[in-house]
Design a protein around this nucleic acid. Sequence first.
DNA 1: CTGCCATAAGGCAGTGGGTGCCAGATGTCA
DNA 2: TGACATCTGGCACCCACTGCCTTATGGCAG
Lengths: 197, 197
Amino acid sequence: MPSTAGLRQRKKDRTRRAIAEAALALFETRGYDQTTVDDIAAAADVSPRTFFRYFASKDEAVFERAGDVQQHVLALLAARPEGEPLLTSLREIGKAVLSTELVDEARLRRLLALVAAEPALRNRYNALLDTIEGELTVWAAGRLGLPLSDLRPRLVAATVLAARRVATDTWLESPGDDLASHVSRAIDLLAAGLTDG
Amino acid sequence: MPSTAGLRQRKKDRTRRAIAEAALALFETRGYDQTTVDDIAAAADVSPRTFFRYFASKDEAVFERAGDVQQHVLALLAARPEGEPLLTSLREIGKAVLSTELVDEARLRRLLALVAAEPALRNRYNALLDTIEGELTVWAAGRLGLPLSDLRPRLVAATVLAARRVATDTWLESPGDDLASHVSRAIDLLAAGLTDG
DNA sequence: CTGCCATAAGGCAGTGGGTGCCAGATGTCA
DNA sequence: TGACATCTGGCACCCACTGCCTTATGGCAG
């Protein structure tokens, strides 16, 4: 009666989520290093071998949804009007992603707090940003009509992501705020050229 | 007759360099994953256990000098005149570091090419940039008279490092160029606010 | 130059992440 | 219901990394 997909697929989805959930919970309570893959597997009621069929490494389990979010961002970017200034597109999307079912702020806070606390996860997060930066660069080069080898599209991608990271970091430290405003401010400052005085 | 330090210390320095050199050479010829710590230790003529007495992990051996360079950059930063715009200080220092005996461009090229090619090293490199970013933030906050929690010093640190990374990346791909000009251009674009049109 | 101490180096056994391979269980579809 | 694809578990294995203990070696009195 349910079945958007076969039983097999639904079971896989459930297993995947169970593993990710178990990993997140254990990392939060016990710490990353104090949690073994065997622990996670046991908590998710699968064999350790199966853990690695779903995630290539221990840290990857934390970023289970990252792929989906990334897809979503790229789709939104492609949909922005052609003539729009790049930083405007990027700022608007930076805010728009947050109002998706994919990302709720409470969970995001938990996740980013964990990432901030655990160097190993920070590494993985950086790697993720690296791949996103590559895709942003392609998009920016297209919009600017410049080759991928040009400094400008790369700079836009790199600095906007850096600004976004900074925004999430300061947001993490100010419990009451909403993330969107931090993102906006960061990108506005960037657009103004970071002039001090 | 030589002896800026005792025999013991000199021997340690030599061992450290030998390990780093062996690691770099092996990673370049054979690839990072195809090189075991045992291989490196054998090439440097020390026991595998000793490798870990000098470097906490396999990837760290590649960034042997990083600590010195980092120290040097911070010293240069502290020496910049008080009133100078931050981006000017950072651009000038970005260029100045390159004319040190610590960094010659040929070797830097080898190293960065390796880092670009090996994800594991890329991770470590990112981690390094993270710590530098923290220190830059402290410096920027001091200069701006703002608290560490403020967006601006963080943004300056994060985006300047991002710009520098982009500059080194494009420099890597254009064999003839010198790095300083790439760095200058990147930071100038950043200061101009990345306006497209 | 000699013995004593601090420390560096080697050896060894163990933990934990990650992989290849094979055998058995479980959806899927004719 | 039976043949097939695929998911899962178990096992053996590699390698990065660590703790602990022993052995070598430089530094330094006397």
